[in-house]
């Protein structure tokens, strides 16, 4: 399981996340809502362990182990995987190389071909990773890599943004696979934390817990479908108002 305790995170000396507490049990998928700039991506980056996102307070534990001081690759090898919103182009490094790296020897060329077929990226295996990829292709390529990596905790940052309606069905199905939606919760060997703006993704994943983040703090916790309905109807403004009524603001 993932246990985040009193976590504060700073980027370039500015604290972005304040005292966040969050627990995800094995088999569960949680959803993060929140307006732009609320700190959702920062939270994901801090869980993944990117050095730019400095933990100033609190701790992150994964599978019972304190991982707060571990490097990105150590966390990845422990079983945390993340889809990037805007992954960099790495010239000369093929999509196939990336998938092979994710597989870490647990599959061969055939495994890669099958995964590429599943994500509709067969034509992209010999191309430089992310080079000239469209928004939808990037999303699928990120999921392709995660399917190879098989993380126990999957962090997804807006997996549906910039994706057309045809692609969103495929992406939803891939996320099902990744998060073992069709497997009874008690048998699942995976967890998920998903940032979403539109909520389309809720049609595809079995998420029972949602959070609204604003101003670097988790404002409220609840059923993600109900939350989405409120946000759709009243906008984040209402959430923030409700939230501001309960908690003092941060500077």
């Amino acid at each position: 399981m993932l246990e985040i305790k009193d976590l504060s995170v700073a980027v370039e000396d500015k604290e972005i996340i304040h005292d966040v507490n969050l627990n995800i049990q094995m088999g569960e998928t949680h959803v993060l809502f929140g307006p732009n700039g609320a700190g959702k991506s920062t939270l994901l980056m801090a869980i993944m362990g990117f050095p730019k996102y400095r933990v100033t307070k609190g701790s992150i534990a994964f599978k019972g182990k304190d991982i707060t001081s571990l490097t990105v690759d150590e966390r990845a090898r422990l079983g945390i995987g993340m889809s990037f919103q805007r992954p960099p182009v790495v010239r000369g490094v093929k999509t196939r190389d990336m998938v092979a790296a994710c597989l870490k020897g647990s599959g061969d060329g055939d495994t890669i071909d099958k995964l590429a077929d599943k994500t509709d990226l067969s034509e992209f295996l010999e191309r430089d990773i992310n080079y000239g990829f469209s928004g939808g292709e990037i999303k699928r390529s990120e999921l392709l890599q995660l399917l190879a990596q098989k993380p126990e905790l999957t962090l997804l940052d807006e997996p549906e943004s910039g994706v057309d309606l045809v692609n969103i069905v495929l992406i939803g199905e891939l996320m099902n696979d990744l998060l073992e939606k069709n497997c009874p919760i008690q048998y699942r060997k995976c967890m998920g934390l998903i940032i979403t703006h539109t909520g389309h993704i809720l049609d595809y994943v079995n998420a029972r817990t949602g959070y609204v983040m604003c101003d670097g703090t988790i404002g409220c916790t609840g059923d993600p479908h109900e939350m989405l309905a409120t946000i759709r109807e009243k906008g984040y403004g209402e959430c923030i108002k409700c939230y501001l009524g309960r908690v003092p603001t941060h500077e």
């Binding site: 990105v72 690759d73 993340m82 992954p87 790495v90 790296a101 990596q149």
Partner: peptide, 14 residues
């Protein structure tokens, strides 16, 4: 650095 970290997030050492 961004490229190095991208690959590290897939489990490769630095």
């Amino acid at each position: 650095e961004e490229e190095v970290e991208y690959l590290m997030a897939r489990g490769l050492t630095r």
